[in-house]
Design a binder for these strands. Structure first.
Lengths: 146, 146
DNA sequence: AAGTATTTTGATACTTAGTCTCATTAAACG
DNA sequence: CGTTTAATGAGACTAAGTATCAAAATACTT
């Protein structure tokens, strides 16, 4: 559910940007759109034995560049992907379970912009990640944690 | 100069935490303390043929955990290290030249904490990186760029 | 519909950044 | 000093990609 929507959205985005909508890309997009929270590139690769590893990585990169996916870094440095709303935002990531929430805070943006200007130079972008243990993963709160 | 200060500081920190102050760790610490801006683990490894690769990585990790170094991620995902002031802070990183500036903004901290609380769960930490092109790297401004 | 041009793919090799194992070496402590 | 315990180095292994390049698929032209 909502998978179809995501898939056509992906097709459209690729088409609009002049990329070909191919079988392998569709397969990656379809699998990606079923994922909740974060996932690793390798999990996509494992789920699609018919698609080459290089193509999986290429497609994930493509989808990240076109803003469909977004790549984040866990506290320990390992990279993860997640479906992404269309706008700039930041992440609250639950370290234990990998669940992520997006947030958008104009105040924060302004603050960071200000910061960059103090250092003189041109701001290219920024990365903000907040790591938490979510309520579900908090010991004692809910018994069925993994 | 100031290298000596850094080295004794490192010795002290290790000692205080109950780690042994060994030859290899001293070598890594000495080399690390000569670096300006960011550097890769491999550059330390290359600079110390007499120290094993594993030890270099182990020591960098140790120094990061004890707050002497701090590990950041460039926009393209590659990891870098830099000498670190003793307190929590964030980074402004010049993508072209790798120069980094630290900043500390209580407002920002408060904002992020607030953010985390909205999502319910316990905040573990956060990562904030601002990417810029610094004045020296801005084309036209200064002719002698790399 | 066929032919051509261009993009994409998959297999494989390679790279980067690290971690793991484990026998050997070296600090630290009494 | 000798002993205990931590740290080291060599080398194999892992994770997350990137590079190469011939073959296949897609799109474009007529």
């Amino acid at each position: 559910m909502m998978m179809l929507t995501d898939e056509t959205r992906i097709d459209n985005v690729l088409e609009e940007l002049g990329y070909r909508v191919t079988g392998p890309r569709r397969k990656v997009a379809r699998l990606v759109s079923t994922k909740e929270g974060t996932f690793s590139a390798e999990s996509i690769n494992d789920g699609l034995p018919s698609v080459g590893r290089a193509t999986v990585y290429r497609t994930l990169k493509l989808l990240s560049e076109t803003g469909i996916l977004c790549k984040i870094t866990l506290p320990d440095g390992s990279p993860r992907y997640s479906l992404d709303g269309a706008w700039h935002h930041h992440h609250v990531i639950c370290s234990p379970c990998g669940k992520i929430e997006e947030f958008r805070k104009p105040v924060l943006e302004r603050l960071l912009r200000e910061m960059a200007s103090e250092v003189d130079g041109k701001m290219l972008g920024h990365r903000v990640e907040v790591y938490i243990t979510c309520a579900d993963c908090l010991p004692g709160t809910s018994p069925g944690d993994n």
